[in-house]
Computed example of a mutant assay.
Amino acid sequence: MKLLSISLGKVSPLFSNHHPDYKSVASGIRKKSISNLQNPIPVEINHLGVQGDEQADLGVHGGLEKAIYVYPAEHYAFWNELLTRETKTPTTLLHGAIGENFTIEGLLETEVYIGDKLHIGDLEFSVVKLREPCFKFNAAMGYKGASKAMLQSGFSGWYLRVLKTGMLSAGASITLAPGQRDISIAQQNKNLLKNRNQKDLWE
């Protein structure tokens, strides 16, 4: 298991025709890789996440409980194929495009449970919850069905709390220390999907 990329983004206007109430909204979802396997520069990770990263709505993203958003690189093929088909535009997403801070390989939602600890390099993190996509994700992807596709696929990624701060570079190895293992990220995703389907909460 390995950290492939560390990404950050600044809050900027995100234009959208994917929500009836918003034509433009502030978002930090557009993130770019600043440390990767080609250029593994050290990046400071503090209790609020990647130094220099910004979030527009701290009630939904960021803060101590959602300091780092992790996404498996294995899912990028799914998004490239889906977006190429639905937008009729050849799509090859770069790491960070899903809005994640850490792009990783070798660890999926079915294998990660709330309360598990991740040791990445010399740093330590705790798994908090899945990512719940909204209309901003639709806008960033340029496809109004992106949020629904994320939940239906189970390819949600998850948030981390930072337990031990310090410097971190792409290429660092990842080890998992199991917690109580009551509910996995995949099961949490299934529960959320069921709830949204029952209440017809799709945007």
Rank of each mutant, 00 (worst) to 15 (best):
D116Q: 12
E132T: 15
I45S: 10
G62V: 07
L83T: 09
I68N: 04
K117P: 01
T87N: 12
P72L: 10
D53I: 07
G59L: 14
E111D: 12
L108I: 13
S126P: 08
T92I: 13
Q55G: 03
P42A: 09
Q55N: 13
N46Y: 07
A67R: 09
E111N: 05
L107C: 03
K88V: 02
K117F: 11
Q51M: 12
G59N: 15
D57S: 01
G62R: 03
V70T: 14
L48Q: 15
A56H: 07
V43W: 00
A73T: 04
T87G: 02
E81C: 04
Q55P: 00
N80H: 01
G121E: 14
E44V: 14
E81R: 14
E111S: 02
E86I: 02
L58I: 11
P72Q: 04
T87D: 07
E124Y: 00
N46P: 00
G52A: 10
E124S: 15
I45C: 06
N46C: 04
E105T: 14
Y76D: 09
T84L: 08
H95R: 12
E65G: 00
G99F: 06
G96D: 11
D53Y: 09
A97I: 03
K129Q: 15
E132D: 08
L118F: 02
D116L: 09
W79T: 09
Y71R: 00
D122A: 15
I120A: 07
H47D: 13
I68H: 05
E65A: 12
Y113I: 09
L108V: 08
K129G: 04
F125W: 12
N101P: 03
Y71V: 00
L130W: 01
L64P: 03
V43H: 05
E54A: 07
T84R: 11
L83P: 10
G63M: 03
I114T: 12
R131Q: 02
E74C: 03
L48F: 13
I45N: 05
T103R: 12
H119L: 14
E54T: 12
T87P: 00
N46G: 01
T92A: 13
K66G: 01
K129Y: 00
T91P: 06
D53S: 11
